[in-house]
Design a protein around this nucleic acid. Sequence first.
DNA 1: GCCAACGTTGGC
DNA 2: GCCAACGTTGGC
Length: 156
Amino acid sequence: MANYWLVKSEPGCYSIDTLENEPDQITSWDGVRNYQARNFMRDEMKLGDKVLFYHSVTNPSIVGICEVVRESYPDHTAWNPEDDHFDPKSTVDNPRWFMVDVKFVEKLPRALSLKELRQIPGLERMELLRKGSRLSVMPVDKNEFDIICNLAKEQA
DNA sequence: GCCAACGTTGGC
DNA sequence: GCCAACGTTGGC
């Protein structure tokens, strides 16, 4: 039974187009430095899980879908002093941060803005729409996922 | 650019 | 273990 997720990224940093244009359309979801988000990736994201791709900050909207193609493994960027997400407390023997690999599935027929999503019955309880929500990896209900996919097909 | 909300850090 | 200070996220 597949689970459903949502990941956030600032498009200026890494966008759905960046993912689509990767050589194999796969990327490691590295750089997450929040324990709750890490726990979802480390403990719960499974092969084949579907993931909504959300652009934050610039035109905040859900723009596409990807899927988990590799389950959690240590985020090696935490070990690299040159990396922006370097964390000296994470070691090879005792890694603190984890990531999964995701693969591009599709862009939605049209992007769904935050503003629009807030008005959709059935999405009221989405973590994404909670005031002050800052989680960058979060679970999504199957119902919510279906509503979003159907909505994107309407008025495409 | 502003600022509310949130997570983390560190003194005590 | 509490909590003030601080840094970051992210909508607007």
